Simulated assay, not measured.
Amino acid sequence: MEQSSEAKQGQEKIRVLVVDDHELLRHGVSAILNRSPSIRVVDEAEDGQQAIEKCREHLPDVVLMDIHMPVLGGLEATRTIKREHPYVKILILTASDTEEMLFDAVKCGASGYILKSASPDEVIDSVRRVYAGEPVIPGNLAMQIISEFAKPAVPTVRQQVDPLTDREMQVLRHLSVGASNRDIAAALYISENTVRNHVRNILEKLHLSNRVQAAAYAIREGYVMEPPHDS
Rank of each mutant, 00 (worst) to 15 (best):
189 Y>A: 10
140 N>C: 00
106 V>P: 02
8 K>H: 03
43 D>L: 04
228 P>H: 02
132 A>D: 05
158 R>H: 13
219 I>V: 12
75 L>C: 01
60 P>N: 05
147 S>E: 14
134 E>A: 15
82 K>E: 09
204 E>Q: 14
28 G>L: 03
16 V>N: 04
165 T>H: 11
149 F>G: 04
160 Q>F: 09
225 M>P: 05
7 A>F: 00
115 L>V: 14
110 A>L: 09
227 P>R: 02
16 V>T: 03
6 E>Q: 07
167 R>W: 00
29 V>H: 12
80 T>M: 12
191 S>R: 04
61 D>L: 06
226 E>L: 11
168 E>S: 08
96 S>G: 11
76 E>N: 07
207 H>A: 14
231 S>E: 09
190 I>T: 00
228 P>E: 03
227 P>F: 00
193 N>H: 06
70 P>R: 04
129 R>Y: 10
149 F>W: 13
64 L>W: 01
162 D>H: 12
25 L>T: 11
36 S>H: 06
24 L>Q: 11
225 M>Q: 15
149 F>Q: 02
55 C>Y: 04
105 A>Y: 02
106 V>K: 07
69 M>W: 00
3 Q>D: 12
158 R>N: 06
175 L>Q: 02
13 K>Y: 08
104 D>Y: 14
167 R>I: 04
119 S>R: 12
230 D>C: 01
119 S>A: 12
220 R>P: 03
11 Q>C: 03
173 R>C: 14
160 Q>E: 10
214 A>T: 03
143 M>S: 07
161 V>Y: 06
96 S>R: 13
105 A>K: 01
110 A>S: 12
71 V>Y: 07
24 L>K: 10
51 A>S: 14
21 D>A: 07
183 D>I: 06
221 E>G: 05
114 I>C: 10
231 S>T: 11
224 V>P: 04
5 S>C: 06
91 L>E: 12
229 H>I: 11
166 D>L: 09
98 T>D: 15
37 P>F: 12
211 R>M: 10
134 E>V: 05
145 I>Y: 10
76 E>C: 01
195 V>A: 12
29 V>S: 10
115 L>T: 13
15 R>T: 04
213 Q>S: 00
221 E>W: 15
104 D>V: 10
165 T>Y: 10
202 I>L: 09
189 Y>M: 09
72 L>F: 04
84 E>N: 10
197 N>C: 08
113 Y>D: 10
220 R>C: 07
75 L>W: 01
47 D>K: 08
163 P>V: 11
139 G>Y: 01
226 E>C: 07
198 H>T: 03
198 H>V: 04
161 V>D: 05
185 A>Q: 06
188 L>T: 06
98 T>L: 14
206 L>Q: 04
89 K>C: 02
57 E>W: 01
56 R>T: 11
105 A>I: 02
12 E>N: 01
67 I>E: 01
97 D>A: 14
88 V>P: 10
177 V>L: 12
60 P>W: 01
172 L>A: 07
49 Q>S: 09
210 N>K: 06
45 A>R: 02
133 G>V: 06
139 G>W: 00
176 S>K: 10
123 V>C: 09
222 G>E: 09
108 C>S: 14
93 L>Y: 14
97 D>N: 15
134 E>N: 07
110 A>E: 06
40 R>T: 15
221 E>V: 11
28 G>I: 01
230 D>H: 05
35 R>W: 11
168 E>W: 12
123 V>L: 15
66 D>G: 00
192 E>A: 08
104 D>H: 11
143 M>A: 07
